[in-house]
Structures are given as structure tokens and as C-alpha cells.
């Protein structure tokens, strides 16, 4: 990827951002990084993109995780095995089929409500969703559209556990994202099959 050569100032901003992320360790909001570095948020975003590319170019053992407006300096997935032996970190406990499909829905359709998850799975998913939230694999927030409702999205921990640095790197992301976008309006379901010619496709109660 040929990017324009960086000016000295930009270069130092990239370096400063890298240093900041290194020391900080945790997921850092672009806004917060901007405050610390004394620049605008979009400058941080540009610097982050440059940092990511620089790491790529010199085949660094690190890469930049980018999730939900935050950044984090992380190791590359190919080193996970090597580092496991050093860290003796517990292997991720396996996931049940129910939690996997729920996780898939949340990951690709985020932000998604429990009603939407239940709609696709045909069963009450409250237990599964709660278990996933307890394991820190999904984030839960209040739905700004509806009172007393929550919406769910994948957590940065989940993305890291799957070995990718951003959700877009997940398999078949764009197509599944498109598929998932149709769940949003279960009341105006578009006919998918060739046979369904009926004009009024309205989901049942």
C-alpha cells in the first residue's frame, strides 16, 4: 500500500501514539489519545492507520487492534502459540453450539437486540446472552431508541480471542453484515426465496 510519505510532524505523532499505546496497554479511546497527545481525534485516527501500516511493513510482531473507536497494541495472531507457553495463559474454554450461533449473530449484526437474536434462533436466548456477557465476550448497552431494552455488540476481547485485529477481518464479513442488516426490520421481511411472490411479507407476531 503506497501511502504518501509522512511529514516529520506526522511521523513523530505516529511514534508518540505508539509509545502511548505501549505504555497504556489497555484499549485506548481515540478521543482520549487525542487529549493526551494534544491533537484532534481524526489526526489520531490517521496516525493509527499509519502505525498499523508501518508495523505491517516491517513485519513487526505487533499489530494495532482497532475496535469501536479504540486502539490497542497487540501481538500478532501467529505468535499466540509461542506466547502461550511463556504466559501459561489458560486456554479459552470451549463454546457451546448455542453460544456460537448467538455470538455469530451478535458479531455480524451488532448492535442487535435480544428480540432480534430470539427471532433468528427461534428460542429464548436470555441465558446464552447472559453467559456470553459474563465471559466478557459481548458488550451490553442501553438501547437509545427504546427504554428498558439492551443492545449487544462484540467486545474487543472477543475480537482478540478470535485472532483478528478488527471485525472486518472476520470471515465473509461484508456479505454476512449485509445479511444481518435485514434482521433489523423483522416486520418488513423481504422475500428471499424465489417462490415467495406474495407482496405483503409481514413477519408474524
Amino acid at each position: 500500500m503506497g501511502m504518501e510519505p509522512l511529514s516529520k510532524d506526522q511521523n513523530s505523532l505516529v511514534a508518540r501514539l505508539e509509545a502511548l499505546l505501549f505504555v497504556y496497554g489497555d484499549l485506548l479511546l481515540a478521543k482520549k489519545a487525542a487529549d493526551v497527545l494534544g491533537v484532534k481525534k481524526d489526526e489520531v485516527e490517521t496516525a493509527a492507520a499509519s502505525l498499523c501500516e508501518q508495523l505491517e511493513q516491517r513485519a513487526s510482531g505487533l499489530t494495532l487492534l482497532s475496535h469501536d473507536g479504540s486502539f490497542q497494541l497487540v501481538t500478532r495472531s501467529e505468535h499466540a502459540n509461542l506466547l502461550q507457553t511463556v504466559l501459561k495463559q489458560e486456554m479459552n474454554e470451549s463454546l457451546t453450539p448455542a453460544s456460537l450461533e448467538t455470538l455469530a449473530i451478535i458479531t455480524y449484526a451488532a448492535p442487535v437486540s435480544r428480540a432480534e437474536i430470539d427471532y433468528i434462533r427461534g428460542v429464548n436466548s436470555s441465558y446464552t446472552v447472559r453467559a456470553l456477557a459474563l465471559r466478557g465476550l459481548i458488550n451490553r448497552e442501553q438501547d437509545s431508541q427504546r427504554a428498558n431494552a439492551y443492545i449487544y455488540s462484540p467486545s474487543a476481547d472477543l475480537i482478540r480471542s478470535l485472532g483478528v485485529a478488527r471485525v472486518e477481518e472476520l470471515p465473509d464479513y461484508n456479505r454476512l453484515r449485509e445479511v444481518a442488516s435485514k434482521i433489523k426490520q423483522p416486520s418488513v421481511v423481504e422475500p428471499v426465496s424465489e417462490q415467495s411472490t406474495s407482496a405483503n411479507a409481514v413477519a408474524g407476531s
Binding site: T63, V74, T75, S77, E78, A80, L83, M91, N92, L162
Partner: peptide, 9 residues
């Protein structure tokens, strides 16, 4: 998930 390719921090 099972691929053990986590990004560590």
C-alpha cells in the same frame, strides 16, 4: 476460537 491465535496484550 479453537485456532489458538489470540492477540495478546
Amino acid at each position: 476460537w479453537d485456532g489458538n491465535r489470540q492477540l495478546l496484550v
